[in-house]
Amino acid sequence: MPDDPYKALGLTKTATADEIKKAYRKLVRTSHPDLHPDDPGAEARFKAIAAAHDVLKDPETRARFDAGEIDATGAERPKREYYRDFADSSDNVYQQRRAAGAQGNPKDFFEEILRQRARGAGGSGGFGGGFSAPGQDARYNLEVPFLDAVRGAEQRITLPDGQSLAVKIPQGTEDGQTLRLRGKGEAGYGGGAAGDALITVKVGEHSVFRREGDDILLTLPITIDEAVLGGKVSAPTIDGPVGLTIPKGASSGRTLRLRGRGVTRAGSKTKGDQMVELKIVSPPEVDAALSDFLMEWRKTHEFDPRADLMKGAGT
């Protein structure tokens, strides 16, 4: 996996959120294994692209990567410790920390400082110099239903110790977005503030709706007569069914826009749209009346929807 998610998407650190989104969509089309089943390297490229997008699409996660707090996989980086920070202190545990190896746990490091201070205070259990440090952040994953993510909801997550934590899902939450619950992480040291809980959201798929940015996508089946004659039909939206006018002579693949029927992000006054793609569906059984009518219509009408296609292909 690339160490730099910007390079994985072919971008620089100055890329805007819109440029990140466009680069990801473009690369997905060229690397998705379902679209390129004969390309043995497609799956690996797609995984690298998806991992890079997960880090950069959320402004908070991107800022933490840019600051060196997390790596390209989203994992926490250990905080750097310098000898000069401890060389003049009576609680110098730098040598013990170094002897324990570079992979030591920061939690063990702070606990050793507390033990040193406790011994310096005559074993009374006090901290002598008043040392304190914030607790570590705790990371969790939470799967959220599609409609709960776009409309907002509240869910509970069970922690490793058996306790439950209420998590407010903001309106418009995206797949892979990280929510921060301040003070809900591990306890601090010596009276220090507790760390935060970082909840990474996995948005489930919906059987009808799809999402692209703040727009909702929907494929709407219509009958042959609705396509030819037009008319008003009922179409589902994330907020309930609405009336939709089908224009006369509509074809499969035509897309209609329902303005303001998309996603509203928390704290935003703007709302996306719903894009409705029409799909003509024949009746499950073609009766004699329909068959006879179309046979007579064919005899008296010349219409070839493939004429321009064949002309453009030079055949």
Score class of each variant (00 low, 15 high):
Ala250Gln: 09
Pro145Phe: 02
Asp34Lys: 14
Arg25Tyr: 08
Gly122Phe: 02
Tyr82Leu: 15
Gly249His: 06
Ile157Trp: 04
Leu56Glu: 06
Pro221Phe: 10
Asp215His: 11
Pro145Gly: 01
Ile238Leu: 01
Gln155His: 14
His206Phe: 04
Arg25Lys: 11
Arg139Ser: 09
Thr300Glu: 12
Ala289Glu: 08
Phe146Asp: 03
Ala75Gly: 04
Lys279Val: 05
Tyr94His: 05
Glu143Pro: 03
Gln103Cys: 00
Lys47His: 07
Phe109Tyr: 15
His206Gln: 07
Asp18Val: 05
Pro241Gln: 03
Ala121Leu: 04
Lys311His: 09
Thr200Ile: 09
Gly126His: 07
Thr245Ser: 14
Val281Met: 05
Glu112Tyr: 10
Ala289Leu: 06
Glu69Lys: 11
Asp239Thr: 12
Asp38Ile: 07
Gln171Val: 05
Lys271Phe: 00
Thr30Asp: 06
Gln274Lys: 03
Glu112His: 15
Trp297Tyr: 13
Glu69Val: 13
Asp66Trp: 06
Phe110Asp: 07
Val55Thr: 13
Asp161Thr: 00
Lys269Asn: 11
Phe109Trp: 10
Ile49Val: 13
Lys279Asn: 03
Arg98Ser: 08
Ala149Val: 02
Leu27Lys: 04
Leu217Phe: 05
Asp273Met: 07
Arg259Asp: 01
Leu35Lys: 08
Ala194Asn: 14
